[in-house]
Design a protein around this nucleic acid. Structure first.
Lengths: 342, 342
DNA sequence: TTGAAAGCGCTAACAG
DNA sequence: CTGTTAGCGCTTTCAA
């Protein structure tokens, strides 16, 4: 009974301690690389633990050391798009180097679910959070976020926290100028709602682009909706079916782009002769189109690296400025833009 | 000092107990819906806890109740493809209904990483695991898996555990018959390695299809490689560049299909006049192709539902047969297959 | 440098 | 039905 211990995993610190003839404190210290233990003893403990196949109970560890890096929460609205799945994968990879496990929470953009998940995550004593807030974050959720080491991703909730975002404003401006330079004067914009921080950023970019191109908002029909492929499809159809047909369609958002691309194809428009099209996301999605689509390419890996690094710095206690950290997207011309039809 | 308690979260069971004038045991029982507490008291406790904003420390809970459903591990080789990301999302959603959090681990198909992650997961006392094993699972990993409630997904490692898979064998047979019926006699197959359980299943389907079609393996060049889009691209090029050109290309695997589709497009082959093509995965990926590609559609949501349900049943202690649970994929004809060129 | 002992916050015997 | 008392497995004072 006493000898068996650890019904489940097996060896525990007390076993090691007993078998080595030292105290559990010493074992713990040795295992955690405390410098307050004679190096050779520490070494011996570690070797023995290894050989004995010891693996620490992370729950106990995290519970005891009221602070620990055992878990980090990753809270996102969706995961079925690379903007999230690719970043999630990369973050999990980076965090696991530190021995940190990532708890994945999908809110489905539902503020209530989000709030519940955040509570649960905090109840699991996560060391920190990487969060992509839902469109309408509740006051209560913000309160929770304020009191935890948070790094925002893709979207900002308005709290004072560092956040990693793609520099949408700048690239959308570039897109508009690109189109205007080709001669377009009736540009349609399909994007995410302004309540979404990235939606707002893209709209700023749009406005700035139009201004710099000497165009007004009257030159630009816009359609804003939550980022789903479905919305992209219907939104694009709506814009393309307007009385004053646009000669170019600019889509601000990855999922919207998926749907929009399908809508354009279904409409049977020849690119770029009948319509110039710029989409958002990963060019490999659009590689099968003919011609391949000119795409705003967002560096998901870089976003992930930044997010993970910022969080780790916060957890290390290093000061991290609570500001946006922007990653520059790249406008990759693949042939779906050209002069407007005569 | 005594009154403050809970440096971090705030209220704990002892606070509630003290403030309500009952014991912590009673509080715990009430909160966990034990029937061994007077209903009205239980009610009062719950209401008070709610009002007090109590939220249980899941670490403590899980540590104490040596069994708990706090966490479940989700171990997959990749997540940047819907075969995994979509299933992960859906599983996270389903598990969260039970209050279970999902720890996401990406192995990158590396057996060593996989083993380490499994150990760490078990060290976190996960209640169970949903695992998509790497191509070459180590003996040690299998040992770990054998001693935990595991449900396999997409791929089997050979241990006695329930697993949820798409019925690749059957659908690949159907594909071959479809092509043969159109008149094809030189079919190329691009698939995953036979070391992968799904690779083996697809090969079985291939062989059976050829046989039923009265063809031999000499009618069918095959190329097997790890499932990445890159490999799909090079593999397809290789098959298409062979001396005896195939008239049809069948791709068994989602990522391979992505690459293969690009290769076919790059080769400038007209579908289905010059080549018949069947791919694997989500048809929306291939919707932009002209014509859209005939696709083997795998029901990711259904896979996820099954996997989550099986795991939950196992955790409930219900007996679950350690066998494959197959989900039928669907062959959706979208126009990229037709009679072979004359 | 090491050990004894007190928790971390919760659940679960065991009594009453 | 309810309370007392041990733990879960680890870390971390506090002394020695």
């Amino acid at each position: 009974m006493a000898g068996t211990r650890g019904r489940r995993g097996g060896v525990g610190v007390v076993d090691l301690a007993r078998e080595l003839g030292v105290s559990t404190a010493t074992v713990s210290r040795a295992l955690n690389g405390s410098d307050a233990v004679r190096p050779e003893l520490a070494q011996r403990v570690r070797e023995y633990a290894e050989q004995r196949g010891y693996v620490a109970n992370r729950l106990a560890r995290a519970l005891s050391a009221n602070t620990s890096r055992a878990f980090v929460g990753f809270v996102i609205p969706y995961v079925d798009t690379p903007a999230y799945s690719a970043v999630a994968a990369e973050c999990a990879r980076l965090l696991s180097r530190d021995g940190t496990q990532m708890i994945l929470s999908i809110t489905e953009n539902d503020p209530e679910r989000e709030h519940r998940q955040l509570r649960e995550l905090l109840a699991s004593r996560v060391a920190g959070l990487i969060v992509s807030p839902s469109t309408y974050v509740t006051r209560a959720s913000k309160e929770l976020l304020r009191n935890a080491p948070v790094v925002e991703l893709h979207r900002a909730s308005g709290i004072a926290a560092p956040g990693v975002f793609s520099d949408d404003e700048q690239v959308i401006t570039e897109c508009v100028l690109h189109l205007a330079a080709l001669g377009h004067r009736r540009i349609a914009y399909l994007g995410t709602p302004r309540e979404l921080s990235n939606g707002a950023a893209r709209l700023r970019g749009l406005r700035r682009g139009l201004e710099l191109a000497g165009l007004t908002e009257r030159n630009c029909a816009t359609h804003l909706s939550e980022p789903t492929a479905e919305n992209g499809y219907t939104g694009a159809n709506q814009l393309l079916g307007a009385a004053e047909k646009p000669t170019a369609l600019l889509v601000g958002g990855g999922s919207l782009s998926q749907g929009a691309a399908r809508a354009v194809r279904a409409a049977g428009l020849r690119l770029p002769e009948q319509l110039s099209l710029i989409v958002y996301g990963d060019p490999t999605w659009f590689a099968l189109s003919d011609p391949p689509l000119t795409t705003v390419v967002v560096g998901y890996a870089e976003l992930a690296d930044q997010a993970a690094a910022l969080l780790q710095r916060r957890l290390d206690g290093e000061p991290v400025e609570p500001r946006p950290y922007l990653v520059k997207p790249e406008l990759v011309n693949a042939g779906s833009t050209g002069p407007p039809p005569a």
